Amino acid sequence: MHVGIDFTAGAWQGAGIGRYTRELISAILAQSSTIRFTLFYAAGFPGASPPPYLHEVQRLCTSHPHTRAVPIPLPPRRLTQLWHRLRLPLPIEWLTGPLDIVHAPDFVAPPTRARTLVTIHDLSYMVHPECAVPGVAAFLRDAVPRALQRADVIVADSESTRRDLHRLLNIAPERVSVVYPAVDERFRPLPPDVCEPVRQRLRLPSRFVLFVGTIEPRKNLVRLLEAFARIDPTTLPDGSGRLFLVIAGRRGWMYQPVFEAIERLSLRDRVQVLDFVADSDLPIVYNLAQVFVYPSIYEGFGLPPLEALACGTPVVTSDNSSLPEVVGNAALLAPADDIDALSDRIARLLSDGALRDRLRQAGLEQAQRFRWEASARQIIEHYHSLSTGASHEASTRAFR
């Protein structure tokens, strides 16, 4: 069996789908010594800067002899235009050779004669179009229905996304397989001697509430800032009167209102905005936080709350979309549009040591339910099912 995997997101994107792709494909390769893999990816124009996670492609190919890489000498945007906007019938097999299966971890698959497995992470661009980049939303509205029509297997990140596919795109639930993302083993409770050097290097405060994610409207950061501003740190048991909010994530789109809110609420001295945090530092930053808050308006899954739970950090998150599915009974929930409720939940966790301890233990247990090895096994089962059903059709399938 020969499986081609679109690794473009894994090669270029730091968070979100990029991390999902790297973690899942690494786990799949580790369990599939009898399957041949080709990782194809947009590599950028010749002579331009290489993808920031090219080393991950190289590591996977070096670690797994049954895996090779095929760089495509175009940047991701240009490749998307060729395959999905102009719809040029240039099958990926022209570059990779014959494939039995094409695995597309990022919404759409390239033209191919092979059977396809396509992952849909969320339908946020339909549920909350006001939070999406207009050009990206327009592309997904056009490309995703076509990808779903052609897909042999549709994978969703959660039951919530499976319901959205049925409700918004009329995809029969039985066509959709839920394969949960997971949390890597490096996200775990860590001792102070490991954490303190990173606190000093990143200049993190001694006591802080943490948010991790892209700075964009869907993450609901303006309401988080308003909720944080309502907490009087002098009333908290610590007694120091000092409490900070740390926002760890790159600026995405329409991020200006977040920085305007920091000024409007006079929080400049109490809010620290980090840029993207390196993967090696992220578990430590979770460990250092007193509380992790993720007030998102909508998520197809939401890795950061799960990562925080795995690190033993108490979590407050929204009660919408997939988030209750992810955190179970191990976090405090609040409506995304209720600033008072969000502020109350944060203050409760900061004030109630017994509640923090209970949620810390529940969070560690909840996180154990989501392992990349289990997710990889589900995908591998789909590979075998597709391969068994595709062998007699391979020579006659039209480009799709």
Rank of each mutant, 00 (worst) to 15 (best):
346 I>H: 02
343 S>K: 09
338 D>M: 01
356 R>A: 10
332 L>N: 06
365 E>N: 11
350 L>K: 05
342 L>A: 00
334 A>P: 08
368 Q>G: 03
362 A>T: 00
358 R>I: 06
343 S>E: 09
358 R>G: 05
340 D>N: 06
368 Q>I: 06
358 R>Y: 09
335 P>K: 05
344 D>V: 14
353 G>L: 12
360 R>G: 06
341 A>I: 01
348 R>H: 12
345 R>C: 10
346 I>G: 03
354 A>I: 09
333 L>V: 00
363 G>N: 14
368 Q>S: 13
342 L>C: 05
364 L>E: 08
364 L>G: 11
339 I>E: 05
369 R>G: 00
352 D>W: 08
349 L>Q: 00
366 Q>M: 02
363 G>T: 03
342 L>Y: 00
337 D>N: 15
368 Q>L: 07
342 L>I: 08
362 A>C: 10
335 P>V: 04
345 R>H: 11
336 A>G: 06
352 D>F: 08
356 R>G: 01
352 D>A: 08
343 S>G: 15
353 G>I: 14
356 R>Y: 12
359 L>T: 13
365 E>P: 05
366 Q>V: 00
338 D>C: 03
340 D>H: 13
356 R>K: 06
333 L>A: 12
333 L>N: 07
351 S>M: 01
336 A>I: 02
340 D>L: 02
362 A>Y: 01
367 A>L: 08
358 R>C: 10
333 L>Y: 06
337 D>Q: 14
365 E>R: 15
342 L>S: 04
366 Q>T: 10
368 Q>R: 11
358 R>P: 12
357 D>W: 11
356 R>F: 05
365 E>T: 10
345 R>W: 00
353 G>P: 07
360 R>S: 07
340 D>T: 13
354 A>Y: 03
334 A>I: 10
337 D>C: 15
342 L>D: 00
336 A>Y: 07
348 R>L: 10
359 L>D: 10
333 L>Q: 10
367 A>Q: 01
339 I>A: 01
349 L>E: 09
341 A>E: 13
361 Q>G: 12
343 S>W: 08
350 L>E: 04
341 A>H: 02
337 D>V: 10
351 S>N: 06
332 L>S: 05
345 R>I: 00
359 L>F: 09
367 A>M: 02
358 R>K: 15
337 D>R: 15
339 I>K: 00
334 A>Y: 04
341 A>Y: 04
364 L>M: 10
352 D>M: 11
358 R>M: 11
347 A>P: 01
348 R>M: 08
368 Q>V: 03
336 A>F: 08
334 A>C: 12
361 Q>I: 09
349 L>C: 02
360 R>W: 09
354 A>C: 10
337 D>L: 08
337 D>H: 15
366 Q>H: 03
348 R>T: 14
361 Q>A: 11
363 G>V: 07
360 R>T: 15
351 S>A: 11
361 Q>S: 12
344 D>H: 15
